[in-house]
Nucleic acid binder design. Structure first.
Length: 865
RNA sequence: GCCGGGAUGGCGAAAUCGGUAGACGCAGCGGACUCAAAAUCCGCCGGUGGUGACACUGUGAGGGUUCAAGUCCCUCUCCCGGCACCA
């Protein structure tokens, strides 16, 4: 054994051993419980970042732990390889997206291998390869034929200068990121996946996911947003609108219908267009609403603006005419693109009504009475439920009674009915981009939209392409889009849009199980491995990716491809990795960001950072606070430096130790030293461990050995509990505490060798999922066995934990005043007697009688005086 | 704006069911070893007062429930994630 811990050599040897033993090659095996451990696959951006290392270290710890628990583990890895950054790199550096992507994959794969993850690389997939995406295209045509994919108009960000569609991320303050031109909303035809057909099921099935974080289920529930309400029809006529029809709105507050004083429609609504036809001012307002991007966060944050269309609709119950306004806070994509406005009982309507002098009419009496005086100036909307007032025949009804009565009356008039509305919208998957999976459709003048037949799949994305950032590359390539109609054979045009990259990531976990099958998307092996037992990934995917995957699994189930409904049994959402940022102000007012690696931080006598200087010039930089590691803030720490300097085990151990997996991890360079020091101590301890002396485990240990052994088994018990909770940082703490106990154990008594060797074997096995290389090396070198990978997981021994006497804390009036030692088996009466008799109690009670004695077995006695 | 989460020493954090707040580690301070440094080892380490035993105080702010609150309830502040074309 090397005296000194040399991680590079230890890790290379362990990795070589695993590789030549095919240690992580997974095969179906009905004899053991299977454990499919999946990490969200990375986008091949160039290099691993700290978030990747954290994600895969957590998953690897789980994979290795379950293997030692006797499971047949599958841990695959692949590449979410389509996406915008490859096109951006092509524009900036002139390198083809495919070439750039494959080079990145090569580099990052080496990095992953150096981290020693227990990955079955034989199952590697890259979504940009035709072998992968042909099945996505194949499924697209199935879903199209089933009616789960359809075409309609959808709004996009249009850059009028570059004549290209921009992602929300590429719209900065309402302008195109490259051209700087103001962005407009534009409606274009797009393909949509009918996820709303599964809204009810996706919502209800959240209850069948007990091992998902509550917060994720809650976010999904709110995203799907099922609401029960009433569809209300406001008729309109030739006289007031110039055509006859009904304006439909959906409301969850039909009880307030008698308080409606206007209706508001989205700028894209048909009535808005109608009114604008002969009203230039209104047309200008609608055009202004079209300015800016489509991101809902921006729309919701902007100031409420509106304009009277001059049109009037009829209140369905009173027959009164209500004005129709166009308002920028009404979204065309939600519900009917129109709302009834009740300023008295809705905050947004109230703000809008006050701004434009629209009437406020009370319909619900507040329970507190504060809003009852209709003549007093209104201070805000009363949005709570209450009994109706000022509402004619409905006066006095409560919320449910009023909704029922009003819905019944509307139904009788044919002007509405109760219905359910979802917030969830169908998923628009068309992208006017190059580096994505081509949508397998052909547009024929005679036959319309025709899916590409199976025999012609895959529609291969050409790799020899010029990316300029202007227009759609595929639309400029006749060799790609000129084709024959599969139905009639006449010249036709191939669809040049590609699919949203979320489509590839919605089913990749199924393909890992069948990745070498050229004849089918999935096969029986997927039935063995799925559902995924443990999914690990960033909390930022809590809604979209996870919801799309849940939808896709059901869509594939309904195509008869799989039997599964829920793809991920257990979910761990990992927190972000954040770090300090440093900057200087430029002359033009911009900030120039410096990487933490290039900055020296000056600390005061107590370790508080007080200033920072740049290493290269020694001049001060401003400390910009702690933020998500990102390119824009230049505060990313390259994990490669860490691995090169300390080794993979140290990097892994530190990342696990620094914070619980689901919480934000704040990067600090100094903490890594502690992890490194600990592993060096483990190595040194193994070096001085000594051979197994072969003596049997002593029947009765002296206290000097029983105490450390008890400590070790207590820590093991805690570690096992924490492993179950997925709280790995305290597992790492437990390992440190075990080493502390081992180092303090006296080695001169009979039985010491057995106690210490047992304790160290526990330590190595606890460490194995987190720092597998050093555990692998020391397990063999200390003679515990050949391979720690399949060593049995340790369990605490009842024997080691037993004790005759325990210590209880003694409280007087809830304040700690001392301890009492008492037999572990003592009754409550004995404990009370002992507590009252103790010196600490008599001193603190000051002669007053005990009013009450609270005893918590095994913990405390509280005497209330 | 809407939805979700978070806040505990100088720092990362721990506290299993409402039961000793700050385990474990980092940084810092003091000491040992060394010609010296590094490494290593030992000790101290929330705040205030006290030589000390100890006392008081302390988990973002304010209120409440309880014998007992970091933990439960109400109100508020700040920070972070998501908001459908970043992945």
């Amino acid at each position: 054994m090397q005296d000194k811990y040399q991680p590079a050599a230890v890790e290379a040897a362990a990795q070589q051993y695993w590789e030549s033993a095919l240690a992580f090659r997974a095969a179906e095996d009905s004899a053991r419980p299977k454990y499919y451990c999946l990490s969200m696959f990375p986008y091949p951006s160039g290099r691993l970042h700290m978030g990747h290392v954290r994600n895969y270290t957590i998953a690897d710890a789980l994979a290795r732990y379950h293997r030692m628990r006797g499971c047949n583990v599958l841990q695959p890895m692949g590449w979410d390889a389509f996406g915008m950054p490859a096109e951006n790199a092509a524009i900036q550096h002139g390198v083809a997206p495919a070439k750039w992507t494959y080079a990145n994959i090569g580099y990052m794969k080496d990095q992953l291998k150096r981290l020693g993850f227990a990955i079955d690389w034989s199952r590697e997939i890259a979504t940009c390869r035709p072998e992968y995406y042909r099945w996505e295209q194949w499924l697209f045509t199935r879903l199209y034929e089933k009616g789960l994919i359809y075409k309609k108009l959808g709004a996009v960000n249009w850059d009028p200068v570059d004549e290209t569609v921009l992602a929300n991320e590429q719209v900065i303050d309402g302008c195109g990121w490259r051209s700087g031109a103001p962005v407009e909303k534009r409606e274009i035809p797009m393909y949509y996946m009918r996820i709303t057909a599964y809204a009810d099921e996706l919502l209800a099935a959240l209850d069948d996911l007990p091992d998902w974080p509550e917060q994720v289920k809650l976010m999904q529930k709110n995203w799907i947003g099922r609401s029960e309400g009433v569809e209300v029809h406001f008729p309109y006529e030739m006289a007031t609108v110039g055509m006859a029809g009904v304006l439909k709105v959906f409301t969850t507050r039909a009880d307030t219908l008698m308080g409606a004083t206007y209706v508001a429609v989205a700028a894209e609504h048909v009535l808005a267009a109608r009114a604008a036809a002969n009203d230039p001012a209104l047309a200008a307002f609608i055009a202004a609403c079209r300015q800016g991007g489509v991101a809902e966060a921006d729309l919701a944050a902007q100031e409420k603006q509106g304009m009277d269309t001059g049109l009037r609709v009829v209140h369905p119950l009173t027959g009164e005419y209500l004005p129709v306004w166009v308002a920028n806070y009404v979204l065309m994509g939600y519900g009917e693109g129109a709302v009834m406005a009740v300023p008295a009982h809705d905050e947004r309507d109230f703000d809008f009504a006050r701004k434009y002098g629209l009437p406020v009419r009370m319909a619900v009496r507040s329970t507190c009475g504060a809003y009852d005086d209709v003549s007093a100036p209104w201070i805000g909307a009363y949005a709570e439920h209450g009994r109706l007032t000022n509402s004619g025949k409905y006066d006095g009804l409560d919320f449910q009674g009023a909704v029922d009565a009003i819905a019944a009356d509307l139904a009788a008039k044919g002007l509405g009915q109760k219905r359910v509305q979802f917030r969830l919208r169908d998923w628009g998957i068309s992208r006017q981009r190059y580096w994505g999976c081509p949508i397998p459709m052909i547009h024929c003048a005679d036959c319309g939209d025709v899916p590409v037949p199976d025999a012609q799949l895959p529609v291969v994305l050409p790799e020899d392409v010029q990316i300029t950032g202007r227009g759609s590359p595929l639309a400029k390539m006749p060799s790609f889009h000129e084709c024959a109609c599969p139905r009639c054979g006449k010249p036709a045009r191939r669809e040049t849009d590609t699919m949203d990259t979320f489509v590839e990531s919605s089913w990749y976990f199924l393909r890992y199980a069948s990745r070498d099958n050229p004849d089918a998307m999935v096969d029986a092996r997927a039935d063995y491995w799925t559902p995924v037992d443990q999914y690990v990934g960033g909390i930022e995917h809590a809604i979209l990716h996870l919801l799309y995957s849940r939808f896709f699994t059901r869509a594939m189930r309904d195509c008869g491809l799989i039997g599964l409904s829920e793809p991920f049994t257990r979910l761990l959402t990992q927190g972000m990795v954040v770090a300090s940022s440093y900057y200087r102000m430029d002359e033009d007012g911009g900030k120039r960001w410096f990487n933490p690696a290039d900055v020296d931080v000056v600390i005061d006598g107590r370790g508080r950072p007080i200033s920072a200087t740049l290493k290269t010039d020694g001049l001060p930089v401003t400390i910009g606070g702690i933020e998500k590691m990102s390119k824009s803030r230049n505060n990313g720490i390259d994990p490669q430096t860490l691995i090169d300097q300390y080794g993979a085990d140290t990097a892994r151990f530190f990342i696990i130790f620094a914070a619980p997996p689901d919480q934000q991890l704040e990067w600090s360079d100094s903490g890594i030293e502690g992890a490194s020091r600990f592993l060096r101590r483990v190595w040194a301890f193994a070096h001085g461990l000594g051979e197994n002396d072969g003596l049997p485990f002593p029947a009765a240990l002296p206290k000097t050995l029983a105490d450390p052994r008890r400590e070790i088994h207590l820590r093991l018990r805690q570690a096992n509990h924490d492993f179950g909770k997925r709280q790995f940082n305290t597992v790492a703490s437990a390992a440190m505490k075990i080493l502390n106990a081992l180092e303090k154990t006296a080695r001169d008594e009979a039985g010491a060798n057995a106690v210490v060797r047992e304790g160290f074997s526990i330590l190595l096995r606890l460490l194995s999922p987190i720092a597998p290389h050093i555990a692998h090396a020391l397990w063999r070198e200390c003679g515990y066995g050949d391979d720690i990978l399949d060593a049995p997981w340790p369990e605490p021994s009842a024997d080691a934990l037993a004790q005759d006497e325990i210590e209880l804390m003694l409280q007087i009036n809830g304040k700690l005043r001392g301890n009492i030692r008492i037999a572990a088996a003592a009754s409550k009466a004995d404990i009370e007697t002992a507590a009252l008799a103790s010196g600490a109690a008599r001193k603190s009670m000051d002669g007053k009688p005990a009013r009450k004695v609270v005893i918590v077995p095994g913990r405390l006695v509280n005497i209330v005086v």
